[in-house]
Design a protein around this nucleic acid. Structure first.
Lengths: 142, 142
DNA sequence: AAAAATTAAGACAATTAAGTCCCAAAATTA
DNA sequence: TAATTTTGGGACTTAATTGTCTTAATTTTT
């Protein structure tokens, strides 16, 4: 469904959404420890997200990563799109090159609506999912 | 969602469901050509399915693979379970070890019902999907 | 009984994904 | 300005998945 990398990235972004802002940047190492991930690997993911301006960063002591208010209003699925690309969630479940309502694969009508709903659910903004964690309705680890 | 291997396997099984029976066995090579797959690799997948008695086989000239009537009444998801195992479709989308309604991840309630529905759709018997191909409602290649 | 055709099994190779490491660039502190 | 701390970028390593090849076992045909 999602690659390991984008799972990590989503976790990290939600961690930032909950704990960071432009006054309170968070180092890669701290995030890595929080979500139990090797820090060099996480750094690379964060850099990819930063390069695409989904998250913000600054260097040096007191530096780190953070989310702007604008970034909080980005659909969560953008994280996945940056790390995995879009095809992973869009391609035919059976791997057929041309699969559509004109030429459906055998599972198309069973599965395609679910895939679409999945993408739609992840269109919800990052802030929406972060709020659940702040409220104690959802958890990021364990 | 599914590994490449299990996509291939599902295709191959549906091909057998449509074209084979105990009087009409089909060689790995023919299936491989039909679904455009390297034949040695497909052979290995077919062997895994045969070892688990999901498909049947016989050796020698006139040998090949086929589905029994009983096998046609197996849920399609069994193919995936044999090739990928079950965890791929059951584990938390964000990769959290313990993710449940007691301790849900932030996307749990958005996504978990869809995953369950996905598995449920693939619980439908192989024959159901094969019929769609026979009817011309669905296609296996291109 | 021998030859040919097929599946079975497992070792091997190639590719991709995951993860590490090193050094440069930028910012802060002293 | 020098030392320190952080991100940025890219080369490198490791692990997992995908794909190939060789040989054995079984069945059919002649």
């Amino acid at each position: 469904m999602l690659s390991s990398s984008s799972k990590y990235a989503v976790n990290a972004v939600l961690y930032l959404a909950v704990h960071s802002n432009d006054k309170n940047k968070i180092r890669a190492k701290e995030i890595a420890e929080a979500i139990k991930l090797p820090s060099p690997f996480l750094s690379k993911l964060l850099q990819s997200l930063s390069r695409e301006n989904l998250i913000s960063s600054s260097k040096g002591p007191t530096g780190g990563f953070y989310l702007t208010k604008q970034a909080l209003n980005t659909p969560l699925i953008e994280v996945v799109n940056i790390i995995d690309g879009t095809s992973r969630l869009e391609d035919c479940v059976l791997g057929l090159k041309k699969c559509s309502s004109e030429q459906p694969c055998p599972v198309h009508y069973s599965v395609q609506p679910l895939k679409q709903k999945f993408r739609k659910e992840l269109q919800e903004n990052i802030s929406v999912f972060a709020e659940k964690v702040k409220n104690g309705e959802a958890y990021l680890f364990v």
